[in-house]
């Protein structure tokens, strides 16, 4: 009997805009392999699923390994030759719930900007 692989989705925000085209994703995967090791990387199977904006994207990882992926993302300091920090904001079992979290976070950030501009 083959077990269904269950996943977790992690909302990640970069400290500066990043391009997640094929070379960008390959570089991110290489860095994750060097931090996690081949065995843990194979088990976690982290994949960039979607990019919401220039700074924010979602990563999918096997359930119960999302903690390792969150930690590994904290150890990455450079992408595409420039210094960047990857912050994990939320985790969720579904992409739809993650999208809702992203919209809520963006709305809160916009509100805060509006309030600070109007003061």
């Amino acid at each position: 009997m083959i077990r269904k692989i269950k996943n977790r989705y992690v909302l990640v925000e970069a400290s500066s805009p990043i391009r997640l085209d094929k070379p960008g994703i390959d570089e991110l995967s290489t860095k994750l392999v060097s931090v996690l090791g081949e065995l843990s990387f194979s088990y976690a199977n982290p994949r960039v699923v979607t990019q919401y904006d220039a700074n924010t994207f979602a990563i999918r990882a096997t359930r119960s390994t999302e903690g390792h992926v969150i930690l590994a993302l904290a150890f990455i300091n450079e992408l595409a030759g420039s210094k960047v920090k990857l912050y994990t904001l939320r985790t969720s079992g579904t992409l739809a719930a993650l999208m809702k979290s992203y919209k809520r976070l963006t709305a809160t950030a916009d509100q805060a900007k509006f309030i600070s501009n109007s003061i």
């Binding site: 400290s15 904290a74 920090k85 904001l89 985790t91």
Partner: peptide, 17 residues
């Protein structure tokens, strides 16, 4: 600077690590 920060979730994982 922002590049030396981590999120609260990552801080929790580092603590367990």
């Amino acid at each position: 600077s922002n590049e030396e920060l981590v999120s609260s979730m990552q801080m929790f994982e580092i603590a367990k690590f």
